[in-house]
């Protein structure tokens, strides 16, 4: 029951993150939404792990920890790119699509 509830929450978080990623223009807002999306995927995965029985399945748990660390590394690289973009162009968003 708990696993299903958190699994459904993960599914909702993926939708929320995806919406922010598409609708927001500011690069940092997108980075934040990307983190929400990823967190939703982790929660889905964790819910699947919990179904394996009391204590959960350690293999997904280990992979989620790996994922959380890599997400931080990607976010740090993204933040550095945004700072660079802001310094070079005075803007905090990528160029608008042509036309």
């Amino acid at each position: 029951m708990t696993a299903t509830l958190y699994g459904l929450t993960g599914a909702a978080l993926v939708g929320i993150g995806l919406y922010g990623l598409i609708v927001r223009r500011h690069a940092l807002r997108r980075l934040l939404a990307f983190n929400l999306l990823g967190s939703g995927v982790f929660l889905l995965f964790g819910a699947v792990a919990e179904r394996a029985g009391p204590g959960g399945d350690p293999v997904p748990h280990a992979m989620i920890i790996t994922g959380i660390v890599v997400a931080l590394a990607a976010t740090a690289l993204g933040v550095a790119l945004v700072l660079h973009l802001a310094r070079e162009t005075g803007r905090a968003e990528p160029d608008p699509p042509e036309g």
Binding site: E50, P54, G56, I65, I68
Partner: peptide, 8 residues
């Protein structure tokens, strides 16, 4: 914690 994943 509620999902029994204290390491995570």
């Amino acid at each position: 914690v509620r999902l029994d994943a204290v390491d995570v």
